[in-house]
C-alpha cells in the first residue's frame, strides 16, 4: 500500500515520551514541541537522553509510552513522514567500502526530496573527494560528508546529534551558516543536540534542556535573553533594598542574583531591558551598565531558581 505524501506544514510534537533501556530510564515523560522555521537546541549532560530523544524523533526507537508525531501523524514506521526527517548520528554509518558517491546513490533511492543539484553544489563547496572511500576520511571529513549528504536530502527536519564535534572551527562556522541559510529559506528546521552550550548559543533560537531523562527547560533564546539582564552598578549610598527595584510605573523586578565586589554591585534582574534600565536609573547610580548574559549564565540563573545546581547538570 503506497503512502500518500502531503506537503510539509506541521511541527514535531513529543508527548509524554518515556523510554527505558533495561533498568535505565533514559527518557521520563518528556513533552516538547518543535516548530518549523527555527533551530532547536537540545542540551544536556552525557546520558541525559538527547540522543535517545533524537532517535525517537527519527523513528529509530519506539517510545515505551507516549508518542512522537509529525504533522499530526505518528513518526514510527511512517515512511511518508520520515521522508522529511534526516537523522545525523554522532557516529554516522557509511558502507564499509563506500564512497560519497555510493552513499549519495543510496540516499537518492531513499529520499524523494533528494536534490542532485544541491548535492553537486555542496560537494564543490565541501571539496571532498567523492570517489574516495569514506572510511579513509578523517573524523572531521566524515562529519562533512554526512552533512553534505543530509542536506542534499532536503529534509524538513534535520536531527543533528553532536554534529559539530570533530569539525574544525572554520568548518563548524561554515556548517552553522549552511544550517542558518536553510532556516532562513524556510526549508529546514535543524534540531541540534549537544552538551556544549556555547556551541549552540550563536545558532539556536530555541533551547531545550534535558536532565535525567526529563526536559527541565524549553524556551525561546531571544525571549530568555530579553527577559533577564546582568547589571553592574555603583551606588552613591548604602546597598539597595533588593525588593525595591521598581520601574517608574511601579512594577517590581525580580533580582535573580546579587553580588557586591567592593563598591560595584553585580545584579541579575528579570524583566524587559527598558524596565530593567528604568529600575536601575531610579536608584540614581554613579555608574551603571547592562551587560548581555551568555546562554550559559542565563541557564545557571534559571536552574538555580528552580533549585538545580546547573554545573552538575551540564557537567
Amino acid at each position: 500500500m503506497n503512502e500518500q505524501y502531503t506537503p510539509f506544514t506541521g511541527e514535531i510534537s513529543i508527548k509524554n515520551v518515556t523510554k527505558t533501556f533495561g533498568r535505565v530510564r533514559s527518557l521520563d515523560n518528556v513533552t516538547a514541541t518543535i516548530r518549523q522555521g527555527s533551530i532547536f537546541g537540545l542540551i544536556g549532560s552525557n546520558g541525559a537522553g538527547k540522543s535517545t530523544l533524537l532517535r525517537i524523533m527519527a523513528g529509530i526507537y519506539r517510545p515505551d509510552t507516549g508518542s512522537v508525531s509529525y504533522d499530526g501523524e505518528d513518526i514510527w514506521e511512517n515512511t511518508a513522514r520520515k521522508q522529511d526527517i534526516v537523522y545525523l548520528s554522532d557516529d554516522q554509518f557509511f558502507f564499509t567500502h563506500g564512497t560519497i558517491e555510493d552513499m549519495a546513490n543510496y540516499y537518492r533511492q531513499m529520499y524523494i526530496n533528494w536534490s542532485d543539484e544541491k548535492y553537486e553544489r555542496l560537494r564543490a563547496v565541501f571539496n571532498l573527494e567523492t570517489d574516495r572511500k569514506i572510511s579513509t576520511f578523517s573524523k572531521g571529513m566524515q562529519k562533512q560528508a554526512s552533512v553534505l549528504l543530509a542536506l542534499s536530502c532536503c529534509p524538513k527536519y534535520l536531527l543533528c546529534d553532536e554534529t559539530f564535534d570533530g569539525l574544525d572551527p572554520v568548518m563548524r562556522q561554515f556548517v552553522k551558516r549552511l544550517l542558518a541559510e536553510e532556516v532562513a529559506d524556510g526549508t529546514m528546521t535543524p534540531v541540534i543536540a549537544s552538551h556544549n552550550m556555547r556551541e549552540l548559543e550563536d545558532i539556536c533560537d530555541h533551547i531545550g534542556l534535558l536532565h535525567k531523562g526529563g526536559i527541565l527547560f524549553d524556551r525561546e533564546v531571544d525571549a530568555m535573553k530579553t527577559s533577564i539582564h546582568k547589571v553592574q552598578m555603583v551606588l552613591p549610598g548604602e546597598e539597595p533594598d533588593l525588593g525595591s527595584f521598581r520601574t517608574p510605573e511601579g512594577k517590581s523586578l525580580h533580582v535573580v542574583s546579587y553580588k557586591k565586589s567592593g563598591s560595584v554591585l553585580n545584579l541579575i534582574l528579570r524583566g524587559e531591558r527598558e524596565e530593567a534600565e528604568a529600575a536601575v536609573k531610579a536608584k540614581n547610580p554613579v555608574f551603571y551598565e547592562l551587560i548581555p548574559l551568555t546562554l550559559e549564565e542565563i541557564f545557571i540563573c534559571e536552574m538555580e531558581e528552580k533549585g538545580y545546581d546547573f554545573n552538575s547538570i551540564i557537567g
Binding site: N2, E3, Q4, Y5, A80, I112, N113, W114, S115, E117, K118, R121, L122, A124, V125, C154, F174, R177, L178, E181, D185, T187
Partner: peptide, 23 residues
C-alpha cells in the same frame, strides 16, 4: 557558499513530480 545557496534550486517545486513517481 552564498552563491551556491542562492542558486539553490527550488527543490520543493521541482521535486513534486519526482515525489509522486518515487512514492
Amino acid at each position: 557558499i552564498l552563491t551556491a545557496l542562492s542558486a539553490k534550486t527550488n527543490a520543493d517545486t521541482e521535486n513534486t513530480g519526482v515525489r509522486t513517481r518515487l512514492l
